[in-house]
Design a binder for these strands. Structure first.
Length: 623
RNA sequence: CGGGUUGUGGCGCAGCUUGGCAGCGCGCCUCGUUCGGGACGAGGAGGUCGGGAGUUCAAAUCUCCCCAACCCGACCA
């Protein structure tokens, strides 16, 4: 009775040694005697080498599932749930189970090592912030609904951390001299973002760990160095994580600042489109990408003329209409509401507006298409007959591709009537020219003319040159070498830990399960016992001890289960190496050595198998 | 926020049309036989059928309201 309570109540690792227990109690829990003896014999040495408790699958909580939950679609989502790495609490919030947390910590540790290597100093800042600090930068208002806000008992407003530019800037306001610079500070800490639509398991969540680092330099040249160092470190991180990465030009969005680079990994589960030139290497997020357009001969500018177009409501219909015009000779007029202001956005008939580009060039925060009633109120006509000709009471933003175009056709702001002979610069009061159109696959690269491709990607990291936006808001000033007080140049750099864990699965899986890279595998090696008897346990234990002593992360599959179950589980959870001990091989003095990724299997003498695995793991980790 | 789908034991599902004992497969527990690729037999445990209200002698099933999750879109660092 007492013995059973011990098993139920005591977590692995605090089991008393045999000598501390009453004789007889332990006979009821014989497997625990093995653990106790192991700790008794090897405890001190293991404690130094590997601080964690011995890992026996029979004692591990790894709730694997034979079927994926039906609401999981992305491979990483399915496999991380099926493999017992995590469970969902509610939309966008996941509980990390022992296996999942182990991987998460390994990912975080790789990131930590690489940021340390570039001179980063780890900190930990609060996750709850007073509203005042966000009001100081202006982002209390501009961040919108993405920020979780809560009110405390005194009625004071607070925010949960979405990012930490403001908070690090307040810390940095203690900097006073260029002699203290450069500084790079970072943390690996929880972020909360009230995403409109959490999805795909860990790929888009509302609560997650991020490594965010911040650089502080006296001048732009210093910022360039910090940025470049992060660029290099990030590439190394993704390489170590086994996640293929592409660095692309990106929109800075709500971060502000001069320029930013995103790191992307190709995946159907992603949410971003990346424009790539297969020839010269041009790469940009579609929110930023441009392309070269063939020139169009419009002939000589004609006169503005209104004509009847009964029932014509679309670009396509006008192109087919007798007396109409091809789509690339039409103007598409989009009525948008930018921060409450009705704005006409004009692009070529066959082009699509990219709203992020519109946001970037106008600085607008809240952008939405106008409702039909708003459109009619503003222009006097319904969608399908809209145009910007002679409109002066609303701002007009036009795409660069329309500069110099003449003889264009567009809606006349009277239902069932259009204008032809439109000279864009003559007939439209364009307040702002900007690159607004979204690149399509097959268009020519701006650098080399090669046809561009578009690839779906997951954003796995993002680095920003912030400049002085936050240092000016928070008074982060230092004296430079000339004795002049200048605002510090800041950069910020983010990697989502859980998202990279998921991205690693997206990039490394097969029909049987996950193929973890050695660097972040929950265990490097699993020792699979085909039968759980004394001989087998003893043989497994010997190899286990050897691997543990070498610092290898090893799991002993001592479960009383059939071979197929053990094989399938170890393949599902993706342990890179498997040492199988079976009665046949044992009789001959051999173990079976299997690589998860290739499936290659060979017989290895029992006396050599641990050494082979150690060498294998070390080689994999060193690369 | 708009559109769509789905909520029934831990996971996967049937039952709902036509109201009438809450079922199946996997998993779990016990015993036995097995044991190198997700065994077999026997016995067992486990469910306020997402929640509330209503209709009815009777609701998983019909009606109304609400909630949640997922997918597409919008949005997004």
């Amino acid at each position: 009775m007492f013995g059973h309570r011990l098993v139920a109540d005591d977590p692995i690792g605090v089991v008393p040694t045999k000598s501390e227990c009453l004789v007889g109690v332990w006979s009821e829990v014989s497997d625990r005697v093995d653990i106790a003896e192991e700790r008794h014999i090897h405890g001190p040495r293991l404690r130094r080498a590997v601080p964690s408790a011995p890992m026996r699958w029979s004692q591990l909580f790894v709730p694997t599932l034979r079927d994926a939950p039906n609401d999981a679609v992305a491979p990483s989502h399915q496999l991380l749930v099926r493999g017992g790495f995590m469970r969902q609490l509610h939309a966008g919030h996941y509980s990390m189970l022992p296996l999942g947390w182990k991987v998460h910590q390994k990912v975080a540790q790789i990131v930590r090592e690489e940021i340390d290597a570039l001179g980063g100093q780890e900190c930990l800042l609060p996750t709850m912030h007073p509203a005042a600090i966000w009001k100081e930068s202006g982002r209390w208002d501009t961040m919108g609904e993405i920020m979780f806000r809560l009110t405390d008992r005194k009625g004071a407003e607070n925010a949960l951390s979405i990012t930490h530019e403001e908070i690090f800037a307040t810390v940095a306001s203690e900097l006073s001299s260029y002699k203290q610079l450069p500084q790079i500070w970072y943390q690996i800490q929880t972020k909360f973002r009230d995403e409109a639509r959490p999805k795909s398991g860990l790929l888009r969540v509302r609560e997650f760990h991020m490594k965010d680092s911040y650089s502080f330099d006296v001048d732009a040249a210093g910022l360039d160095v910090a940025f470049e160092r992060h660029d290099v470190a990030y590439r190394r991180i993704f390489e170590r994580l086994g996640v293929p990465s592409i660095a692309v030009q990106a929109s800075s969005g709500a971060m502000g600042g001069d320029s930013s680079v995103e790191f992307m990994t190709p995946s159907d589960a992603g949410e971003d489109d990346v424009v790539l030139c297969p020839d010269c290497g041009y790469s940009a997020n579609i929110e930023k990408a441009t392309s070269a357009l063939p020139s169009i001969d419009d002939g000589a500018a004609g006169e503005l003329e209104m004509f009847d177009t009964p029932g014509v409501r679309t670009i396509k219909a006008l192109a087919e209409f007798d007396g109409g015009a091809a789509a690339d000779h039409q103007l598409k007029t989009l009525v948008m509401i930018l921060d409450g202001t009705v704005t006409l956005v004009v692009v070529r008939g066959d082009h699509q507006l990219n709203t992020q580009k519109l946001a970037d060039v106008t600085g607008a925060i809240d952008i939405r298409p106008a409702e039909t009633e708003e459109t009619v109120a503003a222009l006097g006509a319904h969608p399908g007959s809209l145009g910007a000709v002679n409109v002066t009471d609303h701002p007009i933003v036009a795409d660069l591709a329309l500069q110099g175009r003449v003889n264009m056709t567009t809606g006349a702001n009277i239902d069932d009537k259009h204008h032809r002979g439109v000279s864009v610069e003559r007939d439209l009061t364009v307040g702002q020219w900007a690159d607004l159109r979204e690149v399509s696959a097959g268009e020519a690269c701006v650098n080399c003319g090669t046809a561009l491709t578009i690839v779906r990607c997951i954003e796995i990291g993002h680095i920003f040159k912030l400049g002085t936006k936050y240092s000016e808001a928070f008074g982060v000033n230092v004296s430079n070498a000339d004795g002049k007080v200048v605002p510090v140049q800041m950069g910020s750099y983010g990697i989502g830990i859980g998202r990279n864990m998921a991205a690693a699965v997206e990039a490394n899986h097969d029909d049987k399960g996950i193929l973890w890279p050695m660097s972040i595998a929950p265990f490097h090696v699993v020792i699979t016992l085909m039968r759980v008897d004394d001989d087998m346990l003893a043989a497994g234990q010997t190899i286990y001890d050897e691997l543990r002593a070498a610092g290898i992360d090893v799991l002993l599959d001592d479960r009383d289960a059939r071979a197929g179950v053990k094989f399938a589980d170890s393949e599902l959870i993706g342990i890179p190496l498997r040492i199988t001990l079976g009665p046949r091989g044992l009789k001959e003095g051999n173990a079976e050595y299997t690589e998860r990724a290739s499936g290659d299997t060979s017989d290895v003498p029992l006396s050599d198998v641990a050494a082979k695995a150690i060498e294998h793991v070390r080689a994999a980790l060193a690369s």
